[in-house]
């Protein structure tokens, strides 16, 4: 069996009194698309943010690429971050610069490539998310779906080994959502990317998921393949897959 790319042991996170994540143990294997599922407020986004180090856990350890995520070692930390791409829930594009610059930033900052090459890479990335026509617009001039696609282009600018997507298809029309899923699958195939997606869209889950992680009230209710999930005998999960709601 392959060694996991993310190892989480006994992760517990609290917001004040409220326990958001309760003793989570989770391994994520490379070259897979893992989908984190669960009703709202069950800790999906917190789990994602804990893994990428934006939320400090109260106890437990998280290992990325086999080593602890250690913010004290600046150089290692930066190096680890370069291997990760994150698509935030609301895009989180920098509002003061154009889409083109937003996507170029990670490449400019973290590689020694020349300008023409960077522009070429950015062009391809924007083409892949269907935004080549809007390259010189500011994020505030785009629609919500376009902003999300631009944010995905930025997240994959450096072809990261690990890609986190927080609700990539929320607020998108079905066609764009399908194209986005295709792009995610292409990235997985071509670059051996490991992708972790938080989503509720049943259609999207069927298209991309290799593995399902079902959270409920801060605990993992089920973890396994899509096929197993449909016949796992846990009523909440089976209801979700038949009705699409929790």
């Amino acid at each position: 069996m392959q060694t996991p790319i993310i190892q989480i042991e006994n992760l517990t996170t609290r917001y004040g009194e409220k326990i958001v994540l309760d003793q989570i143990n989770l391994d994520i294997y490379p070259h897979e698309v893992s989908v984190i599922l669960g009703g709202s407020g069950c800790g999906k986004t917190t789990l994602l943010k804990s893994i990428i180090g934006l939320v400090e856990p109260d106890s437990g350890t998280i290992k990325l690429f086999g080593e602890l995520f250690n913010k004290a070692d600046e150089q290692r930390y930066t190096h680890t971050l370069r291997r990760i791409g994150v698509l935030f829930q609301n895009g989180a594009l920098l509002n003061s610069i154009s889409i083109l610059e937003n996507v170029s930033i990670p490449i400019e900052q973290h590689s020694r490539l020349d300008k023409t090459l960077i522009e070429k890479i950015v062009t391809v990335k924007l083409q892949q998310v269907n935004l080549a026509d809007s390259a010189y617009l500011l994020p505030s001039e785009l629609s919500g779906g376009m902003r999300k696609r631009a944010a995905l282009a930025r997240a994959i600018a450096l072809d990261p080994e690990l890609l986190f997507c927080d609700e990539p298809s929320a607020g998108l029309d079905p066609l764009t959502s399908e194209n986005l899923d295709k792009l995610i699958l292409t990235l997985k195939e071509q670059f051996n990317m490991t992708i972790i997606v938080v989503t509720h869209e049943l259609a999207s889950i069927h298209r991309i998921a290799d593995r399902i992680i079902f959270l409920d009230q801060g605990k993992i209710l089920f973890m396994g393949t899509l096929k197993d999930a449909k016949s796992c005998g846990i009523s909440e999960i089976e209801t979700f897959f038949t009705t699409g709601s929790f």
């Binding site: 083109l100 070429k120 062009t123 391809v124 924007l126 083409q127 892949q128 080549a132 026509d133 809007s134 390259a135 010189y136 292409t186 195939e189 071509q190 670059f191």
Partner: peptide, 21 residues
């Protein structure tokens, strides 16, 4: 085959940015 596929998928042929305003 895999490299060829990657070259095809990520080719910039046919993609062009909108002209600079």
């Amino acid at each position: 085959e895999k490299i060829g596929q990657a070259i095809k998928t990520f080719s910039s042929k046919g993609s062009q940015l909108s002209p600079i305003p």
